[in-house]
Amino acid sequence: MKMQKYLTIAFVALIIITFASFFMYSYMYRPHRNVIEEQTVAVLSATELQNRFADANGSLESFADKIIEVNGLISNVEQQRTIIVDDKVQIDFDGSSEIEATLIKGNMIRVKGRCVGYDDLLEIVKIDQAILINNY
């Protein structure tokens, strides 16, 4: 009888430990942010975005690390997966997307991505993990 009691306690403990470690694991190794699924915080033009950062440092917190949508003209196609929009915003596309061939200087473009912050050496805003929404 006593034996059975111990077994029940051990069994319950085992279940608790299993669940706890499962939750611990999923907390510690949860996936990175998913730009596609996340809601866009703001939609604005490249010039507008750059002005916000360049003018007042106060707006720095409002967009840094947020998911935003930006539109404008491609002013330069850099190497790899990088384009410059209106000489104001640098877009680094997500590594998994294959789109570079269709990006041409002068195209109107709209992308969704994570705003990284303001680069005051080049005076441009940087966006990474971007995905293409429109390109024409």
């Binding site: 190794y29 949860r30 996936p31 942010r33 840094a64 690390d65 990284v116 912050g117 990474d128």
Partner: peptide, 9 residues
């Protein structure tokens, strides 16, 4: 913020 770690946490 542009630095990426393997582990998001």
């Amino acid at each position: 913020k542009g630095f990426r770690f393997k582990n998001s946490l």
